[in-house]
Design a protein around this nucleic acid. Structure first.
Lengths: 342, 342
DNA sequence: CTGTTAGCGCATTCAG
DNA sequence: CTGAATGCGCTAACAG
């Protein structure tokens, strides 16, 4: 009855469970790990002992012998608040968490400072501390690819790896196509002088969405000179919009590579007396909540981050388990979500 | 020179480091853990071996003997996107991460589903899997307090624990005072029919901010009937504002217990043709980014979440290390941040 | 199906 | 200051 642990007592051990169940350590161990080759009686005795004692296996001891840690890392290169407060990050967490919820696998968060932290992160990842890693918000120079390629650690990138997309498995949204579709939409609704607020060009999503914008304009025979670079933040988007208005005052449509940047741009447009969508049409990217809550709501591109990172986790778990997995990247589509801004 | 590990090789062990350095395991171990009672020669030989081999200690093995895991948990009760996408959460992460950056301590994220997850979380926390826990977004019925009280696990709450504020250590912003100051500000700038959009009343922050609002109105001799309850989300704030306008159409000031709710309320006010701040003055709570980017920007209460959670981590590390720590809660002040909305 | 045996890699007595 | 011995709690052969 009393499965209340007396305070101060140590956590119950397998030994104690076995004793309580009247079996040997090994039988108890087997009963706990799948119950293969264990008699029903032994199994239930062990099960009862576990409940009675409030037992849960010591992960350290288990790791030591299995050489697995039952934990995976989410690696986020970038120190500052930017990434963490981006809705993208929250959704990634949500997806990973969803994939892990039915497992015993823990999620370790590694926020890698750019300067000093690289070495520590590298060692940590190289030396068996986690069974695998999901990398998000990867930048060209964060050296995560080298680190992970050098190790034998299973890993999956959320977002295309910069240098080795053929050897490192990843999930991503089709950013080029997304950028193209967004821009095509602007053209289709009548824009002829279409600018873009690009994302950071040391991130794949930044360059790809920009490339998509260029593709669409080339196909439409329109000029692609009105480019300003942002950093995926709202204030970065605002600054970029200022620049765009200064250098290309006649712009009548803008594709912002993220909703956060679009939101910043929206404010600047309003401040300059440009009505959206009447004077300037604006389309964002991501549709992770902010797009719906601006005024006017932003037309944007859907980005299935939760689903994507859920898949990333599953692919990673497959790798960890040694299950054969198609090495092809998992690419998700992005659709135009029409709202008032364009 | 070549500290490049041959692929496929196992991670180097202490044994190998010792051999490479020409000392015994124990000496190598001492050299690694502080270098007490180790000759300079031995120390530097070990240091060199570590670099040469790319050694880093196996945490599982170390844990097994030290009975510490060098990891702490951030426990987030609540399944859905709400919490994760709240700027509050991002800042908490930032603060914890900052406090941990100079240590070898890892952060394990535990997103506790409300339904089934409680048991698992309880076992996990009870059985030595982490050295301590920080709890954020605690609700009255999530049973985290019982679980943690029952275990001997060091823990710190970010936000006052519901039942046992005397026995569970915590950090918090002074929510009652914050709510009062916010409301006093509204009164001071001329509001006479002041409503509030309260937070969830199963969270301490929800009830406390509401209490502060009542205090201020009582002191000013104003009625405190215009209450609508939200859930700290934007849409919840919008719904609450609708209710407020319906039940108290003459309201001329609103204290929203969070900026997200204030942002939702702002849209509803605009939709109803109420100018902010001309017709209705609006003040929020948190100032974590969203307040500055609404139109008009929100007057709000500062909330030093990053600092607070940094302190939470430090307090926790003190507990873990067995360092004596004043048991008193660490309470932070909240100041009015004046912007255009009030 | 079960119990016995042997480490996993490390920190830590305890002798020297 | 150093090294040899011990055991943390667990899983994985192996022999019954």
């Amino acid at each position: 009855m009393s499965q209340v642990e007396r305070p101060g007592r140590h956590a119950p051990t397998l030994e104690e469970v076995a004793e309580h169940a009247g079996v040997s350590r090994s039988t108890a161990s087997r009963a706990i790990n799948g119950g293969l080759r264990v008699s029903p009686e032994a199994q239930s005795a062990v099960d009862r002992a576990i409940v009675a004692l409030g037992y849960s296996p010591n992960r350290a001891a288990r790791s030591l012998v299995t050489r697995r840690t039952d934990s995976i890392a989410l690696v986020v290169p970038e120190p500052d608040e930017r990434v963490l407060s981006d809705p993208y990050f929250a959704r990634t967490l949500q997806g990973l968490s969803a994939a892990l919820t039915d497992t015993e696998i823990q999620l370790v968060l590694i926020i890698a400072r750019r300067d000093d932290g690289t070495q520590r992160t590298a060692r940590y990842l190289r030396n068996q501390h986690v069974d695998g890693a999901v990398v998000v918000s990867h930048h060209r120079d964060d050296s995560l690819e080298e680190v992970l390629a050098g190790s034998r650690l299973p890993c999956v990138f959320v977002g295309r790896p910069w240098q080795s997309p053929e050897t490192i498995q990843y999930v991503d949204v089709d950013n080029v196509l997304g950028g193209r579709r967004a821009t095509e939409y602007l053209v289709q609704v009548g824009c002829r002088r279409v600018g873009t607020i690009a994302g950071p060009l040391d991130m794949a999503a930044g360059v790809d969405r920009l490339a998509g914008w260029r593709e669409a304009l080339a196909a439409a025979g329109l000029p692609d000179h009105a480019v300003a670079r942002g950093d995926f933040t709202s204030s970065g988007g605002a600054a970029a919009m200022e620049q765009l208005l200064r250098e290309h005052p006649d712009v009548d449509g803008v594709f912002a590579a993220s909703d956060l940047m679009a939101a910043g741009a929206l404010e600047v447009l309003r401040a300059h007396g440009r009505a959206v969508p009447e004077d300037v049409r604006l389309i964002g990217f991501d549709d992770l909540g902010v797009a719906a809550s601006t005024a006017p709501p932003l037309t944007t591109m859907s980005n299935p981050v939760v689903e994507m990172s859920r898949v990333a986790a599953e692919v990673l778990l497959d790798q960890v388990a040694g299950r054969a997995t198609s090495h092809a990247p998992r690419i998700f589509g992005a659709e135009v979500v029409v709202r008032a801004s364009a």
